[in-house]
């Protein structure tokens, strides 16, 4: 198998008594769009900061492309962390040229990148004259310089209007389709669900889950059932092997499923036992409900 793009091995970091990151382990492979999902203060930025050598971990280590990290490896990574950081009194182009100098990239790719993020017309304006959304776009432009193999984006749609958000998401999907690896930190569930192939869920510095987004969505589907006599229905369904949990919500029986089932089969099976359903529907649980469930479990 190919060497993973990134291996994170038991990273921990504390600020005083606050554990910002607690024994975090994760592996990311080439071509994955990996979402790091977590509420505010869960340690997303801390993780990415360590991976970019601006923060030092207390324990643990990480490898980029199978090697212990150095400054050269960072030139293969495009990064946007928390907020756009540029020299305020320099123009957009000049700022990008400085980035290109560090990355060892040529200046001639800059115009194309500025067009891609829609800033070409303002390329000679000073950074400090930009609006929040324009600054964010410039930061994304900077991350794209030098044909990076990995993009690290920490809340990349922060401060953007809905149209821009859609544009940036499409840009991320485009980039991913070219085989680049993307690491996307976000607290926006919808963003992760729409753009990511994989997800790690982080809370209070701990990893609660990591895997394919698809698996999260499938493994956690639910079946809603209604019938005249709910108690008979409940007893009957409790005999199904594929049910992991059942509860009654608003006069509806909600079954959590271990695996996919065909609702038609369930309907037929119950009808055979003389139970006629007035309502049956398969509900694919959203990442959101899974996320909230995980968090409430972690609080307990």
């Amino acid at each position: 198998m190919q060497t993973p793009v990134l291996e994170i091995d038991h990273l921990s970091k504390s600020y005083g008594h606050i554990k910002a990151l607690d024994d975090f382990t994760l592996t990311i492979h080439k071509g994955e769009v990996f979402g790091i999902l977590g509420p505010n203060g869960s340690g997303k930025t801390t993780t990415l900061g360590i991976l970019l050598d601006i923060l030092k971990a207390d324990r643990g280590n990480y490898r980029w492309f199978g090697k212990l990290p150095d400054s050269y490896v960072r030139r293969r990574i495009g990064a946007l962390l928390e907020q756009p950081l540029f020299y305020p009194y320099l123009s957009a182009v000049r700022n990008l040229e400085l980035v290109a100098d560090i990355k060892g990239a040529k200046y001639d790719e800059i115009d194309g990148i500025l067009k891609k993020v829609g800033l070409y017309e303002r390329k000679t304006s000073k950074f400090k004259t930009f609006s929040l959304g324009m600054k964010q776009r410039l930061a994304i432009a900077a991350a794209l310089i030098g044909n990076p193999e990995v993009l690290i984006l920490d809340e990349p749609t922060n401060g953007l209007d809905p149209k821009s958000i859609a544009e940036i998401r499409n840009l991320i999907i485009d980039i991913a389709n070219k085989g680049l690896t993307v690491i996307l930190a976000s607290h926006l569930l919808d963003e992760v669900q729409k753009t990511c192939s994989h997800v790690a869920i982080l809370d209070k510095g701990k990893s609660l889950h990591s895997g394919k987004v698809e698996d999260v969505l499938n493994s956690s589907s639910q079946l809603e059932l209604k019938s005249e006599n709910m108690s008979i229905l409940k007893t009957a369904t409790s005999k199904f092997e594929f049910v992991s949990e059942s509860k009654v919500e608003k006069e509806t029986l909600v079954l959590s499923l271990k695996q996919d089932v065909d609702p038609a089969w369930v309907n037929k099976e119950l009808a055979g036992q003389g139970i006629y359903l007035s309502h049956i529907s398969l509900r694919k649980r959203s990442l959101e409900s899974y996320f909230l469930e995980l968090l409430s479990g972690n609080d307990a």
Binding site: L52, D53, I54, D70, S71, Y72, R74, R75, I77, A79, L81, Q83, L85, F86, Y87, P88, L98, V99, I102, K103, A142
Partner: peptide, 17 residues
């Protein structure tokens, strides 16, 4: 104050550089 040292290091400068 502009946090550009942060960005320069993220972009691939080493701290010593």
């Amino acid at each position: 104050s502009n946090k550009t040292m942060r960005q320069n290091i993220m972009n691939g400068m080493s701290r010593n550089q």
